[in-house]
């Protein structure tokens, strides 16, 4: 995935079954953001794989004051890349293990 300067990782181990996953997001390289972000630390949140879109969550983070409006796309992309990887793992890895 492209280096967006924003890191998104699983906040808990994925059991491959739950419809919601816990993710943790933090800024690794603030220079890649257009707006100034506060020193937020790591933001943990749950993401509903089938109901939500990364764009919704990114917008909520902007609304909550974590990020500037101009960075909503880079936040959404960072979440989208991680979610895509998790879904890829679920489709490819889990069937092989079970």
């Amino acid at each position: 995935a492209e280096d967006t300067g924003v890191r998104v990782e699983l906040a808990e181990e994925d059991d491959g079954r739950k419809s919601s996953i816990a993710l943790r997001l933090w800024v690794e390289d603030a220079k890649k953001l257009k707006g100034k972000s506060k020193d937020n630390g790591a933001i943990e949140f749950t993401f509903e794989l089938e109901k939500e879109t990364p764009d919704d969550v990114a917008q909520e983070m902007v609304d909550a004051g974590f990020f500037h409006e101009s960075d909503v796309k880079i936040i959404a992309k960072s979440i989208r890349d991680r979610v895509a990887l998790i879904q890829w793992r679920r489709e490819r890895i889990w069937p092989m293990l079970h």
Partner: peptide
Amino acid sequence: NSFTQVVHSAGRRFIVSPVPESRLREQ
């Protein structure tokens, strides 16, 4: 812990905690 902050927005709960030093990229 005392460094953890909970922010509610649009029905979602964000839990904010410090990033462990080891997870920060070397600049």
